[in-house]
Simulated assay, not measured.
Amino acid sequence: MPDDDFTPLPDPRRRADPLKGRGTATRLAHRFDTRDRVSDGEAPVFMEDGDAELPPPRTEVTPEQARSILTHNDSPDIPFSQALNPYRGCEHGCIYCYARPTHSYLNLSPGLDFETRLVAKVNAAERLSAALQKPAYVCSPINLGSATDVYQPIEREWRLTRAVLEVLGACHHPFTLVTKSAGVLRDLDLLARAAERQLGYVMVSITTLDGRLSRSLEPRAAAPWARLDAVRQLAAAGVPVGVNVAPIIPFLNEPEIERIVEAAAQAGAHAIHHTIVRLPWEVNPLFQEWLDHHVPERAARIMARIREMRGGRDHDADFRTRMKGQGVWAELIRQRVRGAAARHGLGHGGPQLDVSAFDPTLLKPMAPSDSAPQGSLF
C-alpha cells in the first residue's frame, strides 16, 4: 500500500510569514505538482526564474455546475454512508483541516489556495432533488459538511446550504450537519422544523475556548463564544446538538478538554464527540510550519506525542485508528473525554433519525441553476 505521507524537501526560503486572517501564507505544491510558491502578503516573492508575482490573496469564488452532488463511503469509522458538500475549499482556513488535500484534484494548492480559491456548486439543490427522485435511491441520513464547512463566510451570499436544507425538508429526508460557524443560526427555522420531525442533528466543532489560539489555528471560523452561543440557541429551539471536541492536538488544545465539555454542557449540548488531529498528505508540512511559526517552543513535543498516537508516524490512515489514535495517550484522551461527558450527563451518539418519513413525490421540479447574481469575487 503506498505511503500517504507528503513531506517536501525542507527549504527555509519557501516559508512565508503568517497572514492575518489566513491559516497559512504558503502555496505549498500539491502532491501532483513539483513547485512550491509562497506569498508574504506584502512584497511579491519569486521562487524560481520566470514565476509571476503573487499578489496579496483575496477570496475568489468560482461557480460550478456539478454533475452529481452526493458522495458515498463504506468506511466503518464514519457514522454516515452519504455526504453532500456544496463548496470546494473552505475560507475558515483551519490549518489542521484534513480536507485540504482535496484541492490537489483541482490542480490547486492545499495551502493558501484551499482557503482563498473556492468553488460553489451553484446547482447543489437541483442535483440533490434529482438524486433523491431516482427510483433506486435508498434513504439514509445525509451528512452536510464532511469536506468543507457548509456555513463558511461565503454562504451568506451564495445560500447553497439553505437551498439544500429546503430540498431535504420538502421531502422529509434526514440529515446530520457539522459546522464551526455561528452562521448555522441563519437557518434555525429550517433546522427547528426538521428537529420536530426527528430529521436533523447538528454538531458544532469547538476546538478551543481560547480566542487568541482560535484566531491563529482557525482564523475565519466563528469565535469560541459565538459557537457556544450557537449551541445554546439551537438547543433552546429544540434542535438536538452535539459538540465535537475536535481535533484534539496534544499540548495545544488538549489541556482544555474538560473545560470545553463543561462549557458545551452548560450551553445545552446533547452529546460530545472527539477526534485526534490527522495529518494526511499536504496537511502534515503545513501543520508543522504553523507549529514553527506560532508555538516553536512546543513544536517538537507536540509532534512527538502525535507520533506516539500514530504508531510512530506523523499520520496513520488505518480506519481502525485514524480518528482516535492508538496507544496509552490516545486511550487517556478517550477516558478524559468520556469522563468529562459522564460528569455532565452527556452522551456520545446522535439521536435516531427517522428515515421512514422520506417521500420523494413531495419534491417539485426545479429550474436549472445559474451563477449567483452577486458575481464570483469577494
Rank of each mutant, 00 (worst) to 15 (best):
I302K: 03
Y201C: 04
I249E: 00
D49F: 01
P86H: 07
N85P: 06
S214M: 09
N253W: 02
P10N: 04
F114C: 01
D74S: 10
V261P: 10
S146F: 10
A246M: 09
A317I: 02
P247K: 15
F319Q: 13
A124V: 01
T24N: 04
A52L: 12
L144E: 01
R212G: 07
L332W: 15
P8F: 03
A120H: 01
G41I: 00
H315E: 10
Y105D: 12
G350W: 08
T176Q: 02
R298G: 09
M309V: 00
T102S: 13
L191T: 08
L291R: 04
C139D: 04
G89Y: 02
E297A: 15
R343Y: 10
C94S: 10
V204C: 13
A299S: 12
L128D: 00
E297V: 00
V241I: 04
G345C: 08
P174F: 06
N143P: 14
L118T: 00
I333Q: 08
R35Y: 03
L353F: 03
W158M: 05
H30M: 01
R67A: 14
Y87P: 01
L70G: 12
P365V: 08
D36C: 06
N253E: 09
Y87W: 09
W329R: 13
G347P: 07
S104G: 13
D36H: 09
P365S: 06
L54T: 09
V164R: 05
H173V: 09
K121R: 12
W281P: 05
G183H: 05
R334C: 12
A372H: 15
D5N: 13
A136E: 15
L353G: 07
P18T: 04
A25C: 07
E157D: 14
T71I: 10
Q352L: 15
R127F: 04
P360N: 02
L84Q: 09
S81I: 13
N253K: 04
V178L: 13
L252V: 08
R67S: 11
C139W: 00
N284W: 11
A43N: 11
H273F: 15
V261T: 07
P141Q: 03
S146I: 04
Q233L: 12
G349V: 14
D113I: 00
H315T: 01
N123G: 06
Q335E: 15
I249Q: 05
P285M: 02
D49M: 02
A29K: 05
G23R: 03
I142M: 08
H294P: 08
M303V: 12
L112N: 06
P12Y: 10
R343Q: 14
T7L: 15
A43V: 11
S104Q: 07
G111P: 05
E115G: 02
Y96P: 00
E218I: 07
S376C: 03
Q82W: 00
A367C: 11
T71Y: 13
L185I: 09
G325T: 08
G311V: 13
R338D: 14
D210M: 06
G339I: 13
S129H: 10
L108T: 01
T102Y: 02
T161V: 11
Y105I: 00
L217N: 04
K134C: 06
V241R: 07
P55Y: 02
L112P: 03
T179H: 07
S369D: 12
D149H: 02
R278L: 08
R313Q: 11
N85E: 08
T207K: 05
